[in-house]
Amino acid sequence: MTTTIPAPRTPRRLRGRTNTELYAWMFMRASGVLLLILVFTHLFVNLMTGDGINALDFGFVAGKWADPVWQVWDLLMLWLAMLHGTNGLRTIINDYAERDQLRLWLKVGLYTATTITIVLGTLVIFTFDPCPPDAAADLLPSFCSVP
């Protein structure tokens, strides 16, 4: 499990067979740039416009997710931020957890938590009903009452 970094100028065939770490490094940069746009817009729309944080309730979320643009937006943000953060934490575990067993179990825990969170979040975005039939009307977005 130990990640060893070969000396610079080591012949290619002695460096190990895959480029996984290079792809992970590229992914951190590509996802970072996308997240910059996704997350900053998310924060601006939810906290700066209208009544800001005070507007936040079920009706607010339902109103946003009635629009497919925000569904895709939040889905992308969910996947990219979770994978970016998980890969970042993988690096940090590799840096500080020196015992093989500990490193292994920390990563098992991390990947389990990440998988559960991504699956749960994705299901919520796709199966969400902005107008649940048995809910009190005053908690729902205004378009629910239109017959």
Partner: peptide, 30 residues
């Protein structure tokens, strides 16, 4: 900051998932 944001993100996804439980559950936690 990366570690901090990551742990917040877990909580943030879990509380937002409550919209799938009921409007009352979500509003109560918020």
């Amino acid at each position: 900051t990366g570690i901090g944001i990551f742990f917040f993100l877990f909580a943030h996804i879990l509380d937002t998932a409550l919209v799938r439980v009921s409007p009352e559950a979500y509003n109560e936690v918020i």
